[in-house]
Design a protein around this nucleic acid. Structure first.
Lengths: 314, 314
DNA sequence: GCAGATCGTGCTCATATGAGCAGCCGGTCG
DNA sequence: CGACCGGCTGCTCATATGAGCACGATCTGC
């Protein structure tokens, strides 16, 4: 296309998209046939001169979702638009809403849903509508009795999801990470705890998020790890955690000793699941998101546009 | 429209604009009739959920141009899009290009074109194509023999426009502002100078820009005014200058004594013109642009989107 | 409880758009 | 010099879309 046609295509696009003229009218105005106008408009679109954005908190990016499915081998992907997002909170809210929508529309409805806990999961629980399902039992898949502040966020999340879904919640009454291996083994051999974990293994679907490996981690906030602990993990290659287990960029356990002291489903158990929904968004989580997808920890990913593009284009 | 319809309209818009489905296909997917889909899409547009942008340096904003004509009483308005602009230089280039395009398309072709000088005018002269007109004579409408750096920018501008338009340039051999009133009157009574000004008065069209009243002014750069001079003008209410004459927000001369020492067409002579094209863009020039339009110094305005919106919505 | 108003729905029909194709023009190579 | 090729043009025809309308549901006020 030469420059004169490029300019004409812009003039045509202005009249078509901004002035709502018909291609025929544009043809008269620019002294072109309507077919030429149609071709100019098609070229303007094809060359990327026309950008169409859907500005809405619930807007999704279907072409990116398709690419994630095709190029990253996911069973499904939900990508929320970042157009018009002004704060990190809004991004988080949009993603949580999308996850809640996905759960609500999920068919068949899972009878037992395994969930992790954390900021993202809590927000999803809040965005779910009363009656989003009927008779969904929720089971915690990793330990999380909070050691200090915000007691019961983990419990509140699971109970909230269950209650709104017309079912009951089964909590995992254990810390996330124990200081000694023996204690962890003792807890896991406890009848109740072992029963919960067995139930978790049998869940039809899992819903979990991932944490970035930095000082803002819920593990630091909850007191399970100290800031130097996290620094050490990062030094060993950790990019973040999934159900309390820290992984490197290939999805491998970074610190087997620490991992052995972590209560809950193992990553391999998660990988074997039919339906594992990861909800990961925000600029700080690009690396973990990549590790989760790369190592097939999830079959479904709910994320934001920027994170998705990072997964696709590096 | 209730929330369910709002959400549906977003889903429909995603399928329509991002996936290129027909309304009928969307109807099948969402279990709606195609008419319902059409209405949802219309509502999504009307409620502003759909934003269509034309991303191109030459893109204009026709609806804003129309509003400028209708609401601010301009004969014509050219508004360049700011979509995708990354630097002030690019904004300036886009506006200058639009001004050059406007001149080129102007009918009837002016036989004599009065021009001011400055950064904007110089850039317009550079964007004009060789042969943009045939036989356009250019005359300077305000004094501008540069006192120090960049000698001849004013002359180069006028000569460039004339030469590319197949005509000749008539320069105004005078400083912009003189220190003493007597000198100014003496210069103006000079046969050559008086002849040039007479020719300027008879021009078919004028092309000029406006300067902001701040330290970046060409008058400071050229040495006609000192920084304290400008500060004083601002204190008296100056928002900027047109053909070297400083005006307040109502378009009135701020300092009559200074104005009397300024060589060139007066503002009232400009106001009487059939065709006075002002080219004003950039965030720093919102106030002058408003003054120019409000006081009818121009009949045609070439500007950028942000400035135009300032003129329209405050 | 009912008449009238209002709204949303799904139709018919006119119009706008896109796909595909024959002809033409300008360039190229034997 | 002329046959060929590729790209552009403006057509025909099928399809997609939008305007207008009649019907039925729902709401409102007496």
């Amino acid at each position: 296309m030469d420059e004169i046609d490029e300019l004409l295509s812009i003039r045509a696009a202005e009249l078509y998209y901004e002035e709502n003229k018909t291609q025929d009218e544009i043809g008269q105005a620019l002294r072109l046939t309507r077919w030429k106008v149609g071709r100019l408009l098609a070229q303007a679109k094809q060359r990327g001169f026309i950008r169409i954005e859907i500005l809405h908190p619930r807007a999704r990016r279907l072409p990116i979702e398709r690419r994630l499915r095709d190029e990253r081998g996911l069973d499904d992907a939900i990508v929320v638009s970042t157009a018009g997002v002004t704060s990190p909170e809004e991004l988080q809210a949009r993603t949580a809403q999308a996850a809640a929508d996905y759960l609500t529309a999920l068919r068949p409805v899972p009878r037992t849903l395994g969930v992790s806990w954390g900021r993202t999961l809590f927000e999803i629980s809040q965005h779910l509508r009363q009656g989003w399902a009927t008779g969904v039992n929720v089971v915690q898949i990793n330990g999380g009795v909070s050691l200090n502040r915000r007691p019961g966020t983990a419990a509140a999340t699971a109970v909230g999801i269950a209650q709104k879904g017309g079912g009951s919640a089964t909590l995992l009454p254990s810390p996330a990470i124990l200081e000694r291996l023996e204690t962890k083994e003792a807890i896991e051999s406890d009848r109740v705890v072992a029963g919960v974990i067995d139930l978790a293994r049998s869940a039809d679907a899992y819903l979990f998020s991932a944490g970035a490996a930095d000082h803002s981690s819920v593990h630091v906030e909850s007191g399970y790890l100290s800031v130097p602990d996290v620094d050490l993990l990062v030094q060993k290659g950790a990019v973040g955690d999934v159900v309390g287990r820290y992984i490197d960029s290939d999805g491998n356990i970074v610190d087997p000793a620490l991992d052995a002291r972590t209560v809950g489903l193992t990553l391999d158990e998660l990988r074997r699941a039919q339906l594992a929904i990861a909800v990961i968004s925000g600029p700080g989580k690009h690396a973990v998101a990549d590790a989760v997808v790369r190592s097939r920890l999830c079959s479904v990913l709910v994320t934001d546009e920027a994170t998705a593009l990072h997964l696709l284009d590096g």
